[in-house]
Simulated assay, not measured.
Amino acid sequence: KDTNVKTLTTSAYAKIMNVADDSSLQLYSSVKIAKLGAKETLTVDIVTPQNITKITPDMYRNAATTLGIEHAKITVAAPIAVTGESALAGIYYSLEQNGAKVSDESKELAQEELKTLSQINEENSGKSNYDADKLNVAMTDIKSAVADKGDKLTEDQAKTIVQQTINNYNLNLSDNQINLLVNFALNLSKSSIIDSASFKSSLSSLKDSIVSKAGNTFSSINLKFDANKTLENSKNIFAQIWQAIVDFFTGLFK
């Protein structure tokens, strides 16, 4: 018997997920986290993929970077078909049982991210030009751009970052799906995780890992795209337009 195995009870789950403790609640997902060396990247292995119906390994990895998890191997399994969205509770529980403090803010943010990614993926699955790898890489770029802007990120800037990023990856998303990403970006900008010195490097490693296993999916896409440069370009274009207006009226009165 593995003495490091900790069972997540329904009452513990209710507390972690901030929901009512219901005795009829059934928990089926199982999560294991193994700490790796500093040179190792974050990996997620779903050992029962047929039973995790909505969440992909890269979605879990994206959410894990938002929790600040870096060098670890996460294993997910379920004995029956489940969405997989509640597996994050097992990750929080495992971290806290091993002495790490996971804030409610971080839990809510990671849960929001996982729900956003899974919803967008489900609603676009099977559509032409859509690819889950593109969505996950786009999310790493959005998060990196938000980290650069910090807590001064405005709603207009968040909209520009999201729109330009999904355009770069040829993701044709609905207005509602774009709004989900914008809301997440704004919530992320208020989180302490973006102040972590390793947050952007973790995102870069995750992006490189997804791209390297995606074949030719990204062959015609600019992987050095920087969403924050679009904000600077927007400011420059506005300044140029304003200067042209000033010059026009100045010319009238000469």
Rank of each mutant, 00 (worst) to 15 (best):
L171M: 10
V19L: 04
L8S: 05
K159W: 02
D141T: 08
D151I: 00
S209T: 12
E85M: 07
V102M: 09
G99T: 09
Q163S: 13
D22H: 05
T43K: 15
N129V: 07
L88G: 01
D195A: 06
V76S: 07
A81H: 07
V211M: 05
I142T: 09
K213H: 11
N121A: 11
A38G: 13
L188R: 10
V146L: 04
Q97F: 00
S202P: 15
I142W: 10
E113V: 01
L25S: 14
E155H: 10
A38C: 04
N216M: 02
T230I: 02
M139I: 04
T160A: 11
D247M: 05
A34M: 07
E108D: 15
T53Y: 02
K213M: 06
S219M: 05
V211Y: 03
T116H: 07
K149F: 03
S125I: 02
N216G: 06
N124Y: 05
N121V: 00
L203N: 14
S189M: 02
L153C: 07
I237Q: 14
D104G: 13
K107T: 09
S24G: 04
L42R: 12
I166E: 14
L67G: 10
V76H: 06
N136W: 04
Q111V: 03
G99D: 11
A64C: 11
G150R: 08
L36A: 08
K54Y: 05
Y93N: 13
K1G: 12
L135A: 05
T9G: 14
T3R: 13
F225I: 06
T160V: 09
I210A: 03
K159L: 03
T56F: 00
L135E: 11
I91A: 09
N233V: 06
Q97D: 10
M59F: 03
A72L: 08
T75W: 02
L8I: 05
S219R: 12
A214D: 10
L180M: 08
L27G: 08
L203C: 07
G150K: 08
F253Q: 14
A89T: 10
S192K: 15
K115W: 00
S29V: 05
D247C: 01
S125W: 06
L36G: 05
S189W: 00
S106L: 11
I178P: 03
V44M: 07
L95Q: 14
N129M: 09
D247H: 01
L231P: 15
I194H: 10
L252Y: 06
E113A: 03
S118F: 02
L36V: 01
Q50V: 02
D195Y: 03
Q243M: 07
V44T: 15
F199E: 13
H71V: 04
T53C: 04
E108V: 06
K159V: 09
D104T: 13
Y130P: 06
T43L: 04
I52M: 12
K200R: 13
N179P: 02
A14S: 14
I46W: 08
V211P: 06
L153A: 05
S118R: 12
I80A: 03
T83F: 01
N172E: 12
D175S: 13
Y130H: 08
N183D: 14
D2Q: 13
G150F: 02
A34W: 01
T3V: 08
A227Q: 12
A158T: 11
F248I: 04
S234L: 07
S103P: 12
D148R: 11
V182Q: 09
S220Q: 13
V47D: 11
N168S: 07
Q164H: 03
T43F: 00
P79F: 00
